[in-house]
Design a protein around this nucleic acid. Structure first.
Length: 356
DNA sequence: AACGCGTGGAA
DNA sequence: TTTCCAAGCGT
């Protein structure tokens, strides 16, 4: 076995992180096996999402739906409500689809081979390898952002991403042991998350500092090399918060695309320029709309500035297509963060924490 | 291949 | 304040 592999596994035995979905090396040695459902659920949640953000969501999901059968029995709306705030909502829609398929076509058991895993919605190269490796201990190369960083530094790979991906995968496969492949994958990710960090890596205490070409020849912080990113355009629009007594008007967004299937307050379309004079023409229904503030929200690929209008004493009869919710029950809705911001601008105490 | 797709925390 | 970016996937 390569020295890098054994060194990293030894480091992992004493320095691994303890996480709600994880089996420790000691437990694994005692014959405890990982639950593929928990590994899958955590991996989906962790896609482009920090460990800290995932922890509480993972606990809630496991509490509500302890098995994949329980999750399949839930409605998509239940799942979206529980996912609200975590972002990338197609993950939640695919999560539900995948649970349905596992129950209908796989007897409630996750497959262990890469091809079957990759055919499931929401499972790509990384997640398929992670499940095969961590849940089934198969020696698959698990390559995420952490591994890309560690490998490009270990071998001083100057090829920019994503062009370097094949080489990184091949290097990772060569390092992956036949035994403890799941622990090795998690060790690489823990190293990337705690030692081999994007900025100011802690090379002095790194178990692989003797093996690191970047550290020997230049500055590890130069790796990985990435293609330059584009500027974020600004889009603008208006949102309409309608109030009737203690209730607020919501509706559903389209099933696909941005914030697909989530709840919203009505808005104008989001365009590059503010068409100021005709904003109110886009109001969902006639009412005494009063401008009440502005919010800004940054998405992955654009920045959104919304002017918030508010109307009280709206006639509920004239409104069709959505539903009314008591303001103090908004926490139970599938509201993405941008919509919570819009509502909070019109109803400042809408999401305020209740006293005692 | 390049783009659409959220959010909140760190520096 | 701004910038970066965190266990990527689908098209």
């Amino acid at each position: 076995m390569q020295p890098i592999t054994t060194r990293l596994l030894l480091w992992y035995d004493s320095h691994h992180r303890t996480l709600p979905w994880r089996i420790s090396p000691r437990e694994r040695l005692a014959g405890i096996t990982a639950d593929p459902y928990r590994i899958w659920l955590s991996e989906i949640m962790l896609q482009q999402t920090t460990v800290e953000a995932v922890k509480s969501y993972f606990r809630v999901f496991i509490e509500k739906w302890p098995t994949v059968v329980d999750l399949a029995a839930a409605s998509q709306d239940d799942v979206l409500r529980a996912w609200a705030g975590l972002g990338y909502y197609s993950r939640a829609r695919n999560l539900k689809k995948c649970a349905d398929i596992i129950c209908a076509e796989y007897g409630g058991h996750f497959p262990s081979d890469l091809a079957s895993l990759k055919s499931l919605p929401g499972i790509g190269d990384y997640t398929a390898a992670a499940i095969a490796s961590i849940a089934f201990d198969l020696p698959m190369a698990v390559v995420d952002g952490n591994v890309e960083r560690v490998i490009t530094r270990l071998y001083a790979l100057a090829t920019p991403l994503p062009l370097a991906k094949p080489e990184i995968r091949s290097r990772m496969q060569a390092l992956t042991p036949d035994e403890r492949s799941g622990d090795f994958a998690q060790a690489m990710m823990d190293l990337g998350a705690t030692i081999c960090t994007p900025r100011r890596p802690a090379c002095v205490i790194c178990p692989l500092n003797d093996n690191c070409q970047a550290l020997k020849t230049t500055d590890p912080e130069f790796f990985p090399v990435k293609a330059p990113k584009k500027e974020k355009p600004v889009r603008v629009g208006a949102a309409f918060v309608a109030i009737s007594n203690d209730e607020l008007y919501l509706r559903s967004r389209a099933e696909t695309g941005l914030l697909g299937g989530m709840a919203e307050v009505p808005t104008t379309s989001w365009t590059a320029r503010l068409d100021g004079e005709t904003e109110l023409d886009a109001a969902p229904f006639p009412a005494n709309w009063v401008a009440t503030g502005n919010i800004t929200h940054v998405f992955t690929h654009f920045e959104l500035r919304l002017k918030i209008y508010k109307a009280h004493d709206v006639e509920k009869d004239i409104v069709a297509g959505g539903w009314w919710v008591k303001v103090d029950k908004l926490g139970g809705e599938a509201l993405p963060t941008v919509m919570k911001k819009a509502i909070a601008a019109a109803v400042p105490d809408a999401f305020a924490r209740r006293r005692n």
